[in-house]
Nucleic acid binder design. Structure first.
Lengths: 240, 240
DNA sequence: CGAAACAACTTGTATGCACAAGTAATAATT
DNA sequence: AATTATTACTTGTGCATACAAGTTGTTTCG
């Protein structure tokens, strides 16, 4: 073994230990982590090191800190600058239902992807699936997804936790999204898009091409989304 | 004086000191800050405190750290998840020219803003200006901007540094963008938008409503953008 | 001359300690 | 009973120190 020398950074092992326990639900969202001093005891270290580990988890959006109280586990999606659909009037309840229309299967890379694939990805087969997201039982987003089969096995659609691919990656494979690049375009709905979203051909559609970078070496997730923003605009927010 | 008790946090004063020197160009983009030990000497403190200050600047996107070399000043825009126009083929050079079409002036708040104004903003007058961004001498983005006059004076268009409003805020007023909320829609071009962007009415246009939060208390910047993404898609990326 | 070793810097990780400041439940006082 | 003070926790800030690890230029050696 030559490559892959792992520096033993104490704060990093603590960080990974806590991260996994958050992912599997040992520390559920809303709960508080053990106090810094308790963690010190468990790992025979000092608060400086523990605080460094917690700082990293803070930066990654897993926890929030409250002086005098503790470190609280938070819903991570909110801390990412991800695009999300927004309810019609902003306050009414609405239910998002995701239907997998083309099951995960091995295909060729689609040339519609506007990002340059890595050499490893080009050489690999590609896993593809398509989903339609419904809000209040009306189709709103048509989403195509690809990833290199060399980097991750085919995950069966029945395996999806709560129908969510990202949730499955996190909880079952410990893979997290660490960043993304996106390209946004406004285009007229093609025949296929119009059919899937139940709208007229030519209606303005928000086209999003996205590449997600993950915590797993070599694994990028590619997305090609078509959003009908007539009733449900796309939201995005970020904060330092 | 009652309100506004400022806790004396040593790392915070160091952080602000360095931030200002970056903003005014004493530490230009690409240069290296003084070493941690030098800063320790200047402020009669320890590396722990200096590193905390640098950590904050790192989180805010002002610097990058390179082990063995130093802390480098970087172009901050890149670290923010801001939307930017992308060149046609991705690699060709293109020049963005911004023309102010309606000079900064005091008006009423425009009801098109889809965010809830604060009470202070509602009570205040509103500064408005409109710009058109050209790429390779063709109009691509029509942009309306508003902010509360109570929070910031009217800045004359001649005062804009390199034609950029945000650059002016940073370098002349030390105000930085700390976050944003955005709403994206795909809409057909209205008559006014079509006229300003030199396109046919009805062509799909990317409509972006944005609220920027700033480092200045009470100051939000509101934007209403219409982008012709036919030749120049909008880019956005974020990383943890 | 070229390569290896070294020295002098930089940032990264870690220990150990002390006290400030915020929170929450309990005890003491009014 | 209601208010106040205390106490025991939590995280936040800061000092002093040590060594690891990465970078760069210089010196030494073959």
């Amino acid at each position: 073994m030559k490559g892959g020398k792992i520096k033993s950074r104490k704060y990093h092992t603590i960080q990974e230990y806590i991260r996994k326990r958050i992912q599997v639900g040992t520390y559920p969202v809303g709960s508080y982590l053990p106090s810094e001093n308790e963690i010190c005891g468990q790992f025979s270290t000092t608060r400086t090191t523990v605080r460094k580990a917690l700082d990293e988890l803070l930066k990654e959006g897993f926890i929030e800190k409250e002086q005098g109280k503790g470190s609280k586990v938070v819903e991570r999606r909110k801390s990412l600058g991800l695009l999300t659909v927004k309810g019609f009037s902003g306050s009414i309840d609405y239910e998002v239902r995701t239907i997998i229309t083309k099951g995960p299967k091995i295909t060729q890379w689609d040339p519609i992807i506007p990002f340059t694939l890595t050499e490893e990805e080009k050489k690999s087969d590609c896993v593809y699936f398509q989903r339609v997201r419904h809000i209040n039982d009306r189709p709103v987003v048509l989403e195509n997804n690809w990833y290199a089969n060399d980097a991750l096995q085919v995950i069966d659609s029945e395996e999806f936790i709560e129908g969510s691919f990202f949730k499955t990656l996190s909880q079952a494979y410990f893979i997290e999204v660490m960043g993304a690049e996106q390209e946004l375009r406004s285009i007229p709905a093609s025949q296929e898009v119009a059919k899937n979203l139940g709208i007229q051909q030519g209606i303005p559609i928000l086209h999003i091409s996205v590449r997600f970078h993950t915590s797993k070496q070599g694994l990028n997730l590619y997305g090609d989304l078509y959003c009908n923003t007539t009733d449900y605009p796309i939201r995005n927010s970020y904060f330092l």
